[in-house]
């Protein structure tokens, strides 16, 4: 564990907490994409299949449980909690899951390190996580109405990805045999998807104005 990895995990945790705070206390999920949240459930469910069979540390297992539990509860809130569900931008959040999942399934079947069930599912989760934010970014672009919490949620998620890249660079130079092309390339793609959002986020922050995306 290095400082970049820890910072990445903590920003990831913070992003989930910000989203839960918005949904649980304000009872609103306006501007939040249910499609993206459902994709995250699939990402965590397929990545942490080994949660009971391979033990790394208490920290790892605990974080896995937190990410699984929080993503499930966010989806539950958005689908079944009456007050929260009313605030969901259903008409705008039209991205098709299969449009993202199918290419990721095919890619995981073609490009992986080992052709075993667990390994292909794990690789699929990496590919899917890289693009899971797309419905959320499309929703933002469409509604263009971004409250502070939604903006902070996406900013923290992007920050988590940025820290993970620093973590990989650090590990590459400090640990022998630490080469993971699949993880790195999908992680890099994922981080690049945030670039546009980050640009406007910093612009609004610099000018001390409310975040607004161009049409």
């Amino acid at each position: 564990m290095n400082i970049f990895r820890l910072a990445g995990d903590m920003t990831h945790l913070a992003s989930v907490l910000v989203l839960l705070l918005k949904i649980h206390t304000i009872k609103s999920c306006a501007g939040v994409s249910l499609k993206t949240q459902e994709l995250y459930v699939i990402v965590f469910a397929t990545r942490y299949l080994d949660i009971f069979t391979s033990f790394v540390s208490i920290y790892n297992s605990l974080m896995k449980l937190i990410f699984l539990g929080s993503s499930f509860s966010i989806v539950w809130y958005m689908r079944y909690h009456k007050a929260v569900h009313r605030t969901y931008d259903r008409e705008q959040d039209t991205f098709r899951h299969w449009f993202l999942m199918l290419p990721c399934i095919l890619l995981a079947l073609l490009i992986h390190e080992k052709f075993t069930f667990f390994e292909v599912m794990w690789t699929f989760s990496l590919y899917l996580e890289a693009v899971a934010i797309l419905p959320q970014l499309v929703l933002l672009q469409r509604t263009r109405n971004i409250d502070n919490l939604t903006g902070q949620y996406i900013f923290l998620l992007g920050g988590y990805r940025g820290f993970y890249i620093l973590n990989w660079i650090y590990r590459y130079f400090t640990e022998p045999h630490y080469v993971h092309w699949i993880t790195w390339i999908s992680g890099l793609v994922q981080t690049l998807l945030y670039a546009d959002f980050f640009y406007y986020y910093f612009l609004s922050w610099k000018n001390n104005k409310k975040l607004q995306l161009p049409a």
């Binding site: 995990d9 790892n60 990410f67 640990e175 045999h177 080469v179 993880t183």
Partner: peptide
């Protein structure tokens, strides 16, 4: 054995 250390990340 092959290094599987990417698996210790989240």
């Amino acid at each position: 054995p092959k290094d599987r250390s990417a698996k210790d990340e989240l």
